[in-house]
Nucleic acid binder design. Structure first.
Lengths: 219, 219
DNA sequence: GACGAAATACGACACCTGCCGTATGTCGCA
DNA sequence: TGCGACATACGGCAGGTGTCGTATTTCGTC
């Protein structure tokens, strides 16, 4: 019927990309036209050759969380974004959708859901993995994402805080972080302090555990 | 020529399993006969229905590192073990091989390596991913793994150290750990010190990241 | 141009950490 | 019986952390 749907596959693991490509290629009217291994490649593709669909692993290097989705959404407003990640924190799911993602799959889910998700997105629906559907379906949030922004907002971190989170997660001290970013150790410390308050974390260990769990780039 | 090679695919992400199965099914004489999503399932399969090959993701829940490989090797001595992980620490690669793994692939590597690795293992060779080959090829380690045990052995932790690792990973201080275990804070501290030396970790953050990455129960 | 958000920067204080010692009791195994 | 591994326990010291302040500059947006 309609012409083939073009897809960009973005995941830092080549083996996972290959698996996704094979899974997608079994679907009718789906063509994988490009792949990306880091956030920058995704941005370049979104700007120069946006496809109909982007399958995006949130744990990639250079993909600093939710803000990245909003950036891609801004670059390629008509491209569907299907987030694929191991992360199942309700907060992140909500935030991803509000930032402009059209679907959210977990790596633990039934692989058949990938096909369902692609179909749903093709029909301009939003698709959430079975296992996390409850997270967004609570009655207080039935309104369209475009409406409420400031309500229970998904703890937005600033760009700087995102950087500090990533570096602190690697066990770097405030001084080391400051050196890498070319700022004062006291400033690095203050950024960390702020992000810890936002995320309700209380130690370096909790920062690291949190970062690994949400699949932040650790390298 | 020969009969088909039976394979068990073990990864906690269903989508990755599915991708691996598709990749493997494109190879001649390879049949995926089972899959597992956690360490326990792998052990059950190894005991009851060992296959010719186990493709094992080291990052799975219940797969507590190197010791797990040795256990599987003991349960099914004739089953080839192909380790697949994002981890590229030379130490881990060496330890995995010494514990009885027959191959080591990284998730970042060229997917074509999977076929190469399967072929190599079928021919009773050991296969290492291109990107990490240097790690084990240093001349000082050319001896057979069966010979040297005490040398750089695969980092055994005592029961107590395991407990402390788990608690420290949650961000607990020495005092809090001591309270939970009913021992002196100074003793808890010493246990932590010892396990850190064994694992070459140097901060609470690294402990937490390590624990989450190897899938320790996080409480 | 005015306002707010973000980024920058500094200080103080109690506490914890990572690293270095040492020492004693228990238990298994050769 | 004795050796070695493990668990227990204590202390010092330099440095880092977590939490509380305050203050200036830069930047986007209304």
């Amino acid at each position: 019927m309609s012409k083939a749907m073009t897809v960009i596959v973005a995941d830092d693991h080549a083996i996972v990309r290959e698996g996704l490509k094979m899974l997608l290629s079994t679907m009718a009217d789906v063509t994988v036209v490009a792949e990306a291994a880091d956030g920058e490649a995704v941005q370049v593709l979104a700007r120069s050759e946006p496809a109909d669909l982007l399958v995006l692993d949130l744990g990639m290097p250079g993909v600093t969380g939710i803000q990245f989705i909003a950036d891609i959404r801004a670059m390629a407003p008509r491209m569907k974004i299907l987030v694929l990640t191991a992360n199942v924190e309700p907060r992140t799911v909500r935030a991803a959708i509000e930032a402009g993602a059209n679907g959210y799959l977990t790596k633990n889910g039934d692989p058949a859901e990938l096909a369902d998700a692609v179909d749903a997105l093709r029909a301009n629906d939003i698709y959430l993995a079975q296992s996390i559907r409850f997270a967004v379906s609570d009655p207080a949030r039935q309104t369209l994402p475009s409406a409420t922004d400031e309500a229970l907002s998904p703890i937005p971190l600033t760009r700087r805080e995102m950087q500090i989170l990533s570096l602190a997660a690697q066990g770097l001290t405030a001084r080391e972080i400051a050196e890498r970013l070319g700022i004062s150790p006291l400033t690095a410390r203050k950024h960390r302090e702020n992000l810890m308050r936002k995320l309700s974390l209380h130690s370096a260990a909790e920062i690291a555990a949190y970062a690994v769990r949400i699949g932040l780039p650790i390298g």
